[in-house]
Nucleic acid binder design. Structure first.
Lengths: 262, 262
DNA sequence: CGAAACTCCGTACCTTGTAAAGTGTTTTGT
DNA sequence: ACAAAACACTTTACAAGGTACGGAGTTTCG
């Protein structure tokens, strides 16, 4: 069983017309043949359950079909392809972060709120991190989330384009940090070793290889981590650190815009 | 042909002992059987050529073996598994960014230099972006790159741990931005449509679906992009924007550390 | 010289997405 | 009421993938 990415992560290719229709729920009535035994939603939910339990990698048409008690091929009457199914799964799950930040919050609190919501979403559905590429499925929930994020910046003097860039920067950072956390969790579950235990295990082998003259800073860093104890490598701590760093960057941007506006 | 990630991106699982030995080149001589017709390096280079041309997804043991003129199974005498091969490929390629920033540069210029080096590396070997997870292959080049990045922050008052966190934040952002750019390039190549053309194509369908009352800001954003023309969505431009935003965040961090140190 | 260690190969298993074609069911048009 | 169209669903089949297994041949060590 290979462990490496074998297909490009993408979501939302294909017909675009059919895709958007599926996403926005516009499949008119009046079909002719026999009724479907299940619904597209049921298929999507079943698939999400699988992905939650074992990741998108483990999700196969056959297994979903099995779980629904139908033959593999009949899934293709609900969904045009596996990719399209994954797109539907993603937008479905993005709906869980519908809650907007409190109206009273300033932009910084609002973005922090949103970032933490996304963090928790990725904890519940880690597989979404594999699907956040370009040309995502432009479903109602993806669009809704962006609307909410843009609103968080309403009180700032940034123009719309700059707001979008800033949010994009934050999102790029978030994805990286969430992936880091997820991979740590997964590696821990699969190997039975915490990052710390793993590091302690790899350390002696590394010490033989690392030339102190070539890599003095990395070696010092190893010591610093050892001295600081477990907490120092905790993904959630690092997430909050990086988040506030990025928000500081946005703050600088805003201050510059304020200065320019006089 | 599916387009979605079917396996978890990881690099560096496995035996750890054997893996590190392979990475650091310590495979002693004095073997008994017949000489190998090729070398591990040759295998790795061939695999890299494939990945450059068609991505990690398209890289299969069979195809690499074919290119070398051996049977698929004999590759396993050079490399214990496909995953380990991918780990070797990654560290090999990371060696291309060996060039350190000029000594005279301040931390900001140095980090900018490094970030751009990484950007260019990802242009040459886009597939590395699928492999930047936790527990990467701790090869000489990964470690070397981190050493160089840490050195860029030598002149700052940050402690080692904080330097590491800051670099990690930057790297997380970088990965996201580079992925964005890569996916745009790929989608363009595969569909024959620029992002712009694609957006223009999807737009009319979206306009029917987007309720101006629910998504006013997103709709305004669409207009802003249209008004700004091509340049506004250019990944390289966005990359530079986000990079300087993150660097502003690091600058705030440094100033706070300076203030605390008095 | 024998045995061990090694390389390399052919075969085989299992899993995947989905194309193709067939069967049966419901609705539509007349 | 009846034929035809549209649909749901199934079986079968293909090509690709990683790699376990066992065998055949080659080199080196004791």
């Amino acid at each position: 069983m290979s462990e490496t990415s074998r297909e490009k992560p993408r979501a939302g290719g294909g017909d675009m017309r059919r895709g958007l229709e599926l996403l926005w729920g516009g499949h008119g009535p009046g079909r002719r043949g026999p009724k479907q035994r299940h619904s597209t939603e049921e298929v999507v939910l079943t698939a999400i359950a699988f992905a939650d339990a074992e990741g998108v990698a483990a999700l196969s048409m056959r297994r979903v079909a099995d779980a629904l008690g139908v033959s593999p091929m009949s899934l293709y009457t609900y969904v045009p392809s596996r990719d399209e199914l994954v797109g539907l799964m993603l937008d479905r799950v993005l709906g869980e972060t519908a809650a907007p930040p409190p109206e009273t919050a300033g932009w910084r609190e609002a973005l922090t709120f949103i970032a933490r919501e996304r963090w928790r979403l990725a904890e519940r559905h880690p597989w979404i991190l594999d699907l956040m590429g370009r040309r995502p499925p432009l479903g109602p929930n993806l669009v809704g989330n962006h609307e909410v994020a843009m609103r968080a910046l309403d009180g700032t003097p940034l123009d719309d384009l700059t707001k979008d860039y800033a949010l994009d920067t934050m999102q790029n950072y978030l994805i990286g940090a969430m992936k880091e956390a997820r991979d740590a969790r997964e590696a821990e579950r699969e190997s039975g070793l915490t990052d710390e235990q793993w590091f302690k295990l790899a350390e002696p082998a590394l010490m033989d290889l690392l030339d102190p003259a070539r890599f003095p800073r990395v070696l010092r860093l190893g010591e610093a981590f050892r001295a600081a104890g477990w907490g120092a490598a905790d993904p959630e701590y690092k997430f909050e650190f990086g988040l506030s760093l990025v928000l500081d960057g946005i703050e600088a941007l805003i201050r510059r815009a304020e200065a320019a506006a006089g």
